[in-house]
Every structure is written in structure tokens, then in C-alpha cells.
Amino acid sequence: MFRIRFHGRGGQGMKTASRILGTAFFIEGYEVQDAPRYGAERRGAPIFAYVRADKVAVNERGIISHPDLVVVSDDTLVGMPAAGVMQGIDQNTVLLINSHETADTWQQRLNTQAKIIILPAQEEIEDRAELPYIGSQCAAAAAALSHVISKQTFTQALTEELQHLGDEVVKQNLAVASTAFDAMAPHSGIVKESALPSATDYIKPEWIELPFEKAEISAPAIHSGATSVKVRTGLWRTMRPVINYEKCSGCWWICSTYCPDGAINVTDDKLPDIDYDHCKGCLVCVAQCPPHAIESIPEHIAKEKELAGAKS
């Protein structure tokens, strides 16, 4: 059975990718499962979807814990524990990353035994929440790596899945998907199907007796204020608002009041200060700042600058 997981951000089309790939396997005569993982996902937040395909009925269900292939549409997610990209990855897993960087760089960075392949990033666009066609590219690359889906089949699957968006959209997606499919040719067949878990040699589940606890502990209640600040929603951000303090008029209320998340506070110097741990990158502040003192820059570039700054 093929077990394939797609990781991306809300809005990047990972559900679509899983559906295109699922349909492609299906056309090739496979039994298929594809599903997005629903939860409290929002635009920009890490999400995933998955596909299983086999020549016999697929009886496994739910999240794939040991994937044969992991496809990552946005390389900023790879190192983010909350995104769960690395979960269940071992030496048999292929990790396909959409990135400007090389496989060697990632291999060193991640210190993993997984085989890493790079899906060469297309021309850079500003806001990664709007990576166009990335879902189709990921699906095409995954199809090529599996070696069991022909390009013709893939084209048919993509067309079926995107038809409702109109011919022009299908055409544009096919063009970039085709490039991605061809780019994976040297690695075709690298993703191997894996077997069902063995029942003769397995690790026992570490079952315990759930201890009975008093209601004051075991009721679903939170006895502290504003614990939500522990959730770093800054990870959702694909575009970063940056205040140019030379232009800031110190009005101090507009960005701070309008920020839906309350992630801009005013310092003792009466200047606004953006809390990047929590700013989701909606850019309302950029749009509303009267003297246009806030600009937006791509988050990955901001990160690179930070890293460079830290090194120097």
C-alpha cells in the first residue's frame, strides 16, 4: 500500500492535492482513500491531507502514522513541530520538499535517515499563503515518484478535480504540474509501497488503568487566565508586517486597536510593538496605518534575515 501525506498551509490546496492524487490512483485501477484532516485550521495555519492506495481494498483508516512519502508544499513548515511534518518518518520514507535549498542542506538540517528530494520551487511569490498551483505541483510530483501513475492519467485526474474552476484554471495548473511531473523523472519509483504491520513481532501498546481523579482536577476547566498566549499563532504568518519607526507618527491606537488579535501593544515610549509570536499576518495594520509606516515582507525572507543577523 502507498501511504502519502501532504503538508501545507491552509489555503495552499493540500486537500485538492490529495484529491487529484487519489483520483489518479483510482484511474490506474487502485483502491483509494483520500481525506483532509479537519480541525481548527485557518488560512496560513499548518494543515495536512493524505492518500492511501492499494491493489486490494484499503482497510486502514485515519491519519497515516508511517508514511511512505511526505510532500511539503512550504518549506517553512518542515522544522515546525506543530505542523507534524516529521511524524513517523524513518529510513523508508521519502520526503519531498518544495524549496529553493538543496537536498543536502535539508539532509544536514534535519539529521534524518529519510530520503530527501527537492521539488524545485517555482518563481518566488510574495505571499506563500497564495502559492498558485502548488497543490497541483505536489500532486504531480507525488504521482511521478510513485511510478505507477502515467502522465496521461495524472492529466485526466487533475482535469476532473479542477474542472469546476474553469478551463483556464485547468490549463494553468496542468502546465506547472507537467513540469513538476517531468522534474521527478530521475526519482521515479523511489517511493515504495509498505506492508501491513506484523502481528508476530510488534511493540505492545503501553496500556494503563486510567486513575480516577477528583472533579476539581478532572473537570474540563481551565483555572488560569489567557493561557492561549502559549499557542504561537505567529507560525501561521506568511507575510510579516514591519513597522518603520521613522515613519510611525506615534498615533498608537490605529494598528493596536484594529489588530483583530490584539497582537500590537503600545510600549512605554508610546510606540506600537508587534508581537510576532502571535501576529497571524492578516496585514490589517499595513492597510490601515495612516502614514503608511507599516510594510509587509514575505515571512521566509524575514526569517532568513533574522538568521543572517544572528550569525553575523
Binding site: L210, F212, S218, A221, I222, H223, S224, G225, A226
Partner: peptide
């Protein structure tokens, strides 16, 4: 005293805990 009661949980692990604790109670 800050107190949030009766909120959502995500995932079967925490959900199972709260439900089973009620059963034990």
C-alpha cells in the same frame, strides 16, 4: 479567579480522559 469551563477539546486522547473520568465518577 479566572475560570473557563466546558470548553472544546481537540483530539481523542483528551476527550477520552474527560469522558472516562466522568464514568469513573
Amino acid at each position: 479567579a479566572p475560570l473557563s469551563q466546558a470548553m472544546a477539546v481537540l483530539g481523542g486522547g483528551p476527550y477520552s480522559y474527560f469522558r472516562y473520568e466522568a464514568h469513573l465518577a
